[in-house]
Simulated scan of single mutants.
Amino acid sequence: MANPVWLITGASNGFGLALARTALAAKHRVIGSVRNKNASTNAVREIVENGGHVIEVDMTEPQSNILTKVQEAESIYGRIDILVNNAGYSVLGGIEQFSEDEVLRQYRTNVYGPLFTTQGVLPGMRMRRSGFIVNMSSVGGQDSQAGGGLYGASKFALEGMSESIYHEVKEFGIGVLIVEPGLFRTNFLHALQTPKKPLPEGYKGSIVESTLNLFPSMVGKQKGDPDKAVHRLFEVVSGEGNDGKLHGKVLRLPLGMDAIDRIDKKARTVLEDVAEARKLEEEASSAFGI
């Protein structure tokens, strides 16, 4: 596809900005979304000066607002070929700590927003019988750990939705990719939020406390190189370059060996559980002569 049109949410920094930068350098057409242009002046300037466009979209807005803004983005070039749902954030804490407002905001940003943007681009993609939807999940969307229950739940939900979309739209020539990064040197850890309610005293010395205390010391020390990750992601999504051979052939793309190792271990434990359940079913069938 010559000069495809990208809509990248969360383009103010991190993977979103890097992906916009990479796509523009490849002479693709890019529309980036940010929550507030005034708070993202450097990113806005860079994207615009390199030939892209920037719109404001708050992923917590109501469905009707987001659908309208996607339609406005589509009118810039008359189409959107690639949607990248990159906008998101994380609230880390013990499950007991989260307020209803914190739960809703996490889900509105990480699940509802991507759902609504996807609804916005699908009619045009279906009509053209082509398109690609990229949902940025996390290794936590496959392997949720202590302290990451709410964030992991939102990414599990995003992945479940993505799997369903994959089956629903592949007959229309539309591809879906779930991206599962591990730890990279982006602003992700800088932007981590914690619940207003403190961790209950009973968790002192627990795995929850030790896990939450670990993150501040990791800022800036993550092994993952975000530029390399974005290069790989761009090639898989666009079908260009060496990694482009995976375009349309995989549903999931873990990024970083830490993510690959964690997801591999998680998958093995699931298969072990399934094997034990199979034994029970077979034993029961044998006992009753079924």
Score class of each variant (00 low, 15 high):
residue 277 A to T: 14
residue 75 S to V: 00
residue 89 Y to R: 13
residue 49 E to Q: 12
residue 112 Y to P: 07
residue 12 S to L: 05
residue 36 N to Q: 05
residue 238 S to M: 03
residue 128 R to K: 14
residue 165 I to K: 13
residue 77 Y to Q: 06
residue 48 V to G: 02
residue 107 Y to W: 15
residue 45 R to Q: 15
residue 260 I to N: 08
residue 26 A to L: 01
residue 40 S to M: 09
residue 245 K to P: 00
residue 208 V to C: 10
residue 40 S to Q: 13
residue 37 K to V: 11
residue 124 G to E: 04
residue 44 V to M: 12
residue 139 V to H: 05
residue 98 F to C: 04
residue 270 V to T: 14
residue 188 F to I: 05
residue 52 G to D: 02
residue 129 R to C: 07
residue 223 K to R: 14
residue 210 S to C: 00
residue 19 L to V: 10
residue 203 Y to Q: 01
residue 35 R to M: 07
residue 235 E to T: 02
residue 171 E to Y: 09
residue 138 S to P: 07
residue 123 P to V: 00
residue 265 K to E: 14
residue 88 G to L: 05
residue 58 D to C: 02
residue 58 D to K: 02
residue 171 E to I: 11
residue 105 R to Q: 15
residue 81 D to G: 08
residue 230 V to S: 02
residue 58 D to I: 02
residue 210 S to L: 13
residue 69 K to M: 05
residue 51 G to S: 06
residue 167 H to M: 09
residue 167 H to I: 00
residue 157 A to T: 05
residue 221 K to M: 03
residue 50 N to H: 15
residue 255 L to A: 07
residue 208 V to W: 11
residue 125 M to H: 08
residue 92 L to E: 07
residue 248 G to C: 06
residue 104 L to G: 00
residue 102 E to M: 11
residue 264 D to I: 09
residue 14 G to R: 08
residue 21 R to F: 11
residue 104 L to S: 13
residue 235 E to H: 05
residue 73 A to Q: 09
residue 68 T to R: 11
residue 121 V to D: 04
residue 126 R to F: 06
residue 214 L to H: 14
residue 168 E to M: 01
residue 30 V to D: 00
residue 272 E to H: 07
residue 204 K to W: 01
residue 146 A to N: 10
residue 184 F to T: 00
residue 7 L to S: 03
residue 82 I to H: 06
residue 39 A to T: 12
residue 10 G to H: 02
residue 271 L to H: 05
residue 236 V to A: 09
residue 136 M to L: 03
residue 265 K to I: 11
residue 90 S to T: 13
residue 1 M to P: 10
residue 261 D to L: 14
residue 156 F to T: 07
residue 59 M to Q: 15
residue 187 N to Q: 15
residue 107 Y to K: 01
residue 85 N to C: 03
residue 199 L to E: 07
